[in-house]
Nucleic acid binder design. Structure first.
Length: 303
RNA sequence: GGCGAGGUAGCUCAGUUGGCAGAGCACGCGACUGAAAAUCGCGGUGUCGACAGUUCGAUUCUGUCCCUCGCCA
């Protein structure tokens, strides 16, 4: 089995800089597990690795698409696995670094993503409009009770997807039981980075201010001018810039981005906390670097 | 100093013809199957400015005081 190391955690804990040091120590190359850094031109807002960092350690899965063209989880899964194989074949260690929970599991676990159908989806979405999400949820209860039990009746997005898959594949949406198993297809070792909440929030605030200073507003407008798909369009920071009522009111803008980012960080944490494979490390610990190296190069005496 | 408006959750405010105080946001927790930086679910917020009076019962009515804002001087 291919040996894979992973570093996960919420935004702004300091994954990227730790990753560089770690990659050097492990003889690793970095595979970004980030749903937004795959878009070209979205650099300051996604805090993408700089050219200097990339020169130091090769980074994969960055700048895969123009923002106008959405990249799906399934495509990401495919590309990331290819990168992992490539790195391993060259005798180096793939180091996965990022905070996109679904993308992480898509790459590392045997999750299958049934195809999509624009027509089926469109008709389902129309029905949500007229009948309401609850009605479709009721229908899902009849078709796939297991899936229905796990999806809230108000969550139109997930209900639509479940019904779409059932219609396309003719099988229950809940068939994909790999979901609950947390069994990686690789010889995987995961480290999670965390910080006391207050500190994490402070760092988020500082980071947003820094992004604004580095020209987030200009970047967002430039990218928007060349076109943004639905996915890129909702990226934190970009969305707030583009939706701003008063573009000159930087204070309100910064405030909104900070709030959204904190909310996001919480959701990231709740995602990774649920993964039993993650071994947590305090990012403010002076001995962090040492501890991580020990964790990844040790011979498997992991919890 | 006079007149007016107001003081209720961390914030913005709603409300109670007198009967256990409620929304949004924030915050905490959770779910997560081709948009996931998405989408959705659950949860607690409290001397209702202070003191006195009326009342079985006052955040609500009355009085005094304090504070904030606006206008006038």
């Amino acid at each position: 089995m291919t040996r894979v190391a992973a570093l996960v955690g919420p935004t702004a804990v300091g994954k990227s800089s730790v990753a560089l040091d770690l990659a050097e120590a492990l003889g690793a190359e970095i595979v970004s597990i980030d749903s937004m850094q795959v878009y070209r031109g979205m650099d300051v807002g996604t805090d993408k690795a700089t050219p200097e960092m990339r020169a130091r350690i090769p980074h994969h899965l960055l700048d895969l698409r123009d923002p106008a063209h959405d990249l799906t989880v399934a495509e990401f899964q495919h590309e990331a696995r290819a990168a992992i194989e490539d790195i391993a074949e060259r005798g180096r260690v793939p180091l996965l670094v990022g905070g996109s929970g679904l993308y992480f599991r898509a790459v590392v676990d045997d999750l299958a993503f049934p195809p999509r159908s624009a027509e089926v989806r469109a008709s389902l979405e129309e029905r949500v409009e007229i009948e309401g999400a609850e009605a479709l949820h009721a229908e899902l209860v009849g078709l796939d009770p297991t899936a229905a039990a796990k999806i809230e009746p108000g969550n139109a997005r997930r209900i639509v997807r479940a019904l779409e898959v059932i219609e396309i594949t003719g099988r229950p949406f809940s068939d994909n039981d790999a979901w609950d198993r947390y069994e990686s297809r690789y010889d995987l070792r995961v480290a999670g980075l965390e910080l006391p909440r207050e500190l994490l929030y402070e760092r988020i605030e500082e980071r947003v201010v820094a992004m604004l200073e580095r020209g987030l507003v200009e970047e967002a407008r430039a990218v928007a001018a060349t076109g943004m798909g639905t996915t890129a369009r909702q990226a934190l920071g970009y969305k707030q810039v583009l939706d701003a009522v008063d573009p000159d009111d930087t204070e309100t803008l910064a405030d909104e981005i900070v709030r959204a980012t904190k909310r996001f960080a919480r959701r990231q944490l709740s995602w990774f906390r649920a993964d039993p494979r993650v071994r947590w490390f305090d990012a403010s610990d002076p001995g962090l670097s040492q501890a991580l190296k020990a964790h990844f190069s040790g011979d498997g005496a992991v919890p």
